[in-house]
């Protein structure tokens, strides 16, 4: 019988393209919403939708594991934490009047065009090998093997980077007056650490 992978084999290319455009049709308005929505918390929720759409794209590319990881870590984990941090830090952000700087509009437009061109050219200039055969059904095994053999060094570096970031965040957030053996700090330094705490949360 069918498997979801087999279904992708069996289904015509049309189906895949239809699904791709459907995803794009949902995702692009969401992405615009993230940019344009004045209410930053709603923008955060829309961002979750965008990440969910990206995971759908991964799914279309037969990268199930990546799609799930994207959904679990980016869409739900990280973005949600960002949204919560927004809720905790600046609830009045949505009421702030946007600062209109008309003289900056043209430079901003030019810059974004430039960035887009650079990205586009770099995408075009790179040779992307396209294979005709489909990825095997158990590409998780392949992924795991290559992560722990061929790419183990970058993998470890990435994890160490995350560890360092985590430890740094803990150190920043930690209140100094809980340190045994150290002098009790004055009010000023305490308020400083509290400020830092906020920064870490954001």
């Amino acid at each position: 019988m069918f498997n979801l992978n087999d279904l992708a084999h069996a289904a015509s290319a049309h189906l895949e393209i239809c699904l791709f455009y459907l995803t794009a049709f949902i995702m692009i308005p969401l992405a615009y919403g993230v940019l344009l929505d004045r209410n930053i918390i709603r923008a955060g929720f829309l961002l979750i939708g965008v990440f969910g759409g990206i995971s759908a794209l991964f799914l279309l590319l037969q990268a199930q594991f990546l799609a799930m990881a994207q959904l679990m870590i980016y869409a739900v984990g990280i973005t949600l934490v960002v949204v919560i941090a927004l809720m905790l830090t600046n609830p009045n952000l949505e009421y702030e009047k946007s600062v209109e700087l008309p003289q900056q509009q043209l430079p901003a437009f030019l810059t974004s065009i430039l960035v887009f061109l650079v990205l586009y050219m770099s995408v075009l200039s790179e040779a992307w090998p396209v294979r005709n055969e489909l990825p095997s059904a158990d590409n998780i095994k392949v992924l795991g093997t290559s992560l722990l053999t061929q790419y183990s060094l970058p993998f470890e570096f990435a994890s160490i980077l995350l560890l360092v970031a985590l430890i740094g965040a803990v150190m920043l957030a930690k209140s100094d007056h809980f340190h045994p053996g150290e002098e009790i700090l004055g009010n000023e330094s305490i308020s400083e650490t509290e400020g830092n705490e906020n920064v870490v949360k954001v």
């Binding site: 019988m1 992978n5 199930q64 959904l71 679990m72 739900v76 984990g77 949600l80 919560i84």
Partner: peptide, 25 residues
């Protein structure tokens, strides 16, 4: 058989992590 995904349990866990978005929202 169609829902016998190779990612299996990872898919289930990823899906079951979504509802919290609904709660916060």
């Amino acid at each position: 058989h169609i829902v016998n995904l190779p990612t299996g349990i990872f898919y289930v866990l990823a899906m079951s992590s979504i509802p919290v978005v609904g709660i916060v929202m």
